[in-house]
């Protein structure tokens, strides 16, 4: 089943809140080799004016992907996950994601375009803590065509 082009413009309901923890930030920072003490040392983070330890810039993917999965595994969308390749990713940070944040993601399918037998899909996830915008994550996935 091909990707359903009518999904362009669709907005999904807000995802369940994700609680950002200092432990997960530390684990993620270590995994990508991020050594800034603001990821692991609360006093160091607070000395720079942050409320608590802050997440590395790409940590937001962990939260955004939860929202993206709603679309990817939506049976009506027709996305074959085994054929999905990550094409592009962009984060626009409105402020650093911080331990203690309860992040909700709202996913919009910006576009669905066929190109050379493949389908390119751009999604935009607005991540916020309460009323406060935290990060906009733009993701391009490519669904490879059948052979």
């Amino acid at each position: 089943m091909p990707v359903n082009p009518e999904f362009a413009g669709r907005v999904y309901p807000p995802s369940a809140p994700y609680g950002v923890s200092a432990a997960k930030i530390k684990e993620f920072a270590e995994a990508v080799g991020a050594t800034d003490p603001a990821h692991t040392d609360r006093a160091a983070a607070q000395a720079r004016g942050y409320r608590d330890v802050i997440a590395p810039p790409t940590f937001a993917v962990l939260v955004a992907q939860r929202a993206e999965m709603e679309f990817i595994f939506d049976p009506e969308a027709g996305v074959d996950f085994s054929r999905v390749v990550h094409g592009e990713e962009t984060f626009i940070h409105h402020r650093p994601m911080t331990a203690g944040d309860e992040i909700v993601g709202v996913l919009t399918v910006d576009s669905v375009k066929a190109a050379g037998g493949h389908t390119m899909i751009v999604t935009r996830t607005e991540l916020s803590a309460g009323e406060e915008p935290v990060c906009t994550a733009l993701s391009t996935i490519v669904v490879r065509g059948g052979e």
Binding site: F28, A34, D36, R48, P56, T58, E88, E89, H93
Partner: peptide, 28 residues
């Protein structure tokens, strides 16, 4: 996303604060 996450450390180590990144994007 691992490669993307490792790559930005070049920038955050230079700037001295991981919270200084306003926008970051790449193609794979």
């Amino acid at each position: 996303m691992f490669t993307m996450g490792a790559a930005i450390t070049v920038v955050t180590e230079w700037v001295g604060d991981a919270g200084a990144v306003l926008r970051y994007g790449t193609r794979f």
